[in-house]
Design a binder for these strands. Sequence first.
DNA 1: TTTTAATGCGAGCTATTGCTCATATTTATA
DNA 2: TATAAATATGAGCAATAGCTCGCATTAAAA
Lengths: 205, 205
Amino acid sequence: MTPDTLPKPRKSPVQARSAATVEAILEAAARILESEGLDGYTTNAIAKRAGVSVGSLYQYFPNKDAITAALVLSDSELMATRMQEVRASYTARPIRECIDALIDVAVCHQFDRPMLARLIDLEEHRLGQDFGLKAAKQKIVMVVRNLLESSEIDLPFDLDTTTQDVFALAHGITDAAGLNGETDRAHLNARIRHAVLSYLGLPTS
Amino acid sequence: MTPDTLPKPRKSPVQARSAATVEAILEAAARILESEGLDGYTTNAIAKRAGVSVGSLYQYFPNKDAITAALVLSDSELMATRMQEVRASYTARPIRECIDALIDVAVCHQFDRPMLARLIDLEEHRLGQDFGLKAAKQKIVMVVRNLLESSEIDLPFDLDTTTQDVFALAHGITDAAGLNGETDRAHLNARIRHAVLSYLGLPTS
DNA sequence: TTTTAATGCGAGCTATTGCTCATATTTATA
DNA sequence: TATAAATATGAGCAATAGCTCGCATTAAAA
């Protein structure tokens, strides 16, 4: 029914092999979500694909949701890191180029494994954000928000709304393209770029 | 006794009460998806909320997926009908007004029950499209495709791509707004209108 | 080496889910 | 009214899920 108490850590890996186990579990979970969807996403299947036993799995994760939460969190943190890096390395260059690079990061993140991205999105909302996810998400949003704020662009709506919509429309286009089986990432980038720039009132150039 | 010994397609409602049962089941299924998500979405729960027994449920649906498929299909058909109606009643008026009306239809469809819309979307891809869904989806797409084709707009990309992206970005913005708890539909409409029109290279007016 | 802690294992318990079937009740038909 | 057809019921079955627990194995500490 209502989401249970938050997934709390069980054991922390101390030796190298256990860290590898944890990593294998998370990777297996991602692969199963990607290839089998929620149907095949069982703890037994995860353990099997990871090459470990269920018992080992439950030594590091208190329950199934904790695995999903760890997956979701690491996904967001990776995204946050990448976007911050891009932003940092483009501070001295025209904003248009930074936008291009950020779009490419976002598209890469979602486009190659569309089903995984979609299911992670779904699980995010089921699990809530009380496990560090909110902070990671905030980092991601802030990159774009700060970029827009520091720019001289005359935004079509208020700063937060504009930021949210830019993310949302890019996400929507990528999602549709991914599920549609498209493979041309450059073309996808161009379309999102067009959508974002025109939404912001900038010349598509 | 029974003429057929093999599993045959389920009954079609003949009497009025059975039609009501079918309707109650579909409505209950939608309500459960909306309020409980996939977790609470069990056949027993559906039957209970519909006020019928599981046995009755399985007289009209061969399995759980058939319920979901019926839900998905009726959802798409409703959308197709509404969009075709709007398109028909706006043939003599400026294309901008038609776009506005179509956006409103799409937003209404998704915004009031965002979780339901999201889960229906997910299930669509799990179930495939071999139950009449493809036709309904095609109807929806065709409304916008024909509108764009017959217009004098210089499209930013080819017709199909542009059509898909317009849907996708509107969908993305609505999805984010819905999950974000927004309630101002007019404001949402304005934002999507801005996104669509600028994507199409039309003045936001 | 011996001892202790960390890690790994997987059969199987408990709860739940999708679904059936024998039976009961309501409606249509003769 | 009598008979058949349609509809409704819900206890319970088979399958499967999440998860535990006693024990085996490996690595670190003494």
